[in-house]
Design a protein around this nucleic acid. Structure first.
Lengths: 158, 158
DNA sequence: TATTGTTATACTCTATAACTATA
DNA sequence: TATAGTTATAGAGTATAACAATA
């Protein structure tokens, strides 16, 4: 333990810090939001490891499932991923045969993205896991508190 | 606009997506927390640019200010930064003469970190800016809502 | 002329192994 | 034997420039 050998009365100059005072940072919304996000992300990564899905992979699969035919460009602007960085993500999911690129009905530059049958199955399980995992991460919050929290967060980013 | 030339009645197969449906992702706490954090971080980076401080630099300076004599190791565990990655951060702040490494009173392996007079001045301004910037980022929230939001976020990570 | 998807590439952030001085 | 600080380095994530095909 740092400073655990310090005598309590040696407190004026050059004393060792027993416990770090984080009170100022904790008055900042950004600090609290980042810390909470890290906790949730940790839960997410652990629970999604069996599906070999990162957060971005899960988000992409989920958006394709709920928006069949969506384009890469639309995914980019929705998720805040830059186009060059989405290419590898899409390539990998297609190589795993979870999604398919299909010709876009009205724009020959673009691809419409669709889930494969395997992708449907995997995503259904992953979305279920995501819901369970969130209950875990927010275990100390009541249902009403969770609802309030989501509403307030949305007020910030919408 | 993607799909803006689509006729509304061509809706059954291979239709183009007009607007991406994010309703499922928005039921997830992790998604909302990440999106809100990104908004706040954006505000932060823009407002802290004049001080040439990243979030981690600001956090380190603030913790040193409120915990004079704190060690690198303590900063690492408080902020979730790995020791090798903190070295360059501390080096840079010391090169800018914002902080000083001083001998630790009871452990010759460690350094006690302290703000220089210049560091004190800069941090005072930066902390003030951080408070203002948060009011900006959370402009759509009342004071009571902000308080609630912080409390709920802390319930997740504490 | 602008946009979609893509390649190449650079930069930043995060993670791991191993070393030294000291506890 | 363990820990604080450090170096070197690898890997993941994020960014910009430029190109072909199409709008």
């Amino acid at each position: 333990m740092p400073g655990s050998t310090q005598t309590p009365q040696a407190a004026k100059t050059a004393q060792a810090i027993e416990r770090v005072d984080t009170r100022f940072l904790e008055t900042l919304l950004g600090y609290n939001a980042r810390r909470a996000t890290l906790v949730i992300v940790e839960h997410f990564m652990r629970r999604m490891a069996p599906y070999d899905l990162r957060i971005v992979d899960f988000s992409v699969l989920s958006l394709i499932a709920h928006n069949p035919g969506v384009t890469s460009r639309q995914l980019c602007s929705t998720l805040g991923v830059l186009p060059p960085n989405l290419v590898a993500i899409i390539d990998l999911l297609e190589k795993r045969e979870l999604i398919e690129r299909q010709p876009h009905p009205s724009d020959r530059r673009a691809n419409g993205l669709h889930l494969s049958p395997d992708g449907e199955v995997l995503l259904r399980q992953a979305e279920e896991t995501a819901t369970v995992l969130e209950d875990e991460a927010a275990a100390r919050l009541s249902a009403a508190e969770r609802k309030t929290l989501m509403r307030l967060l949305q007020k910030i980013y919408r």
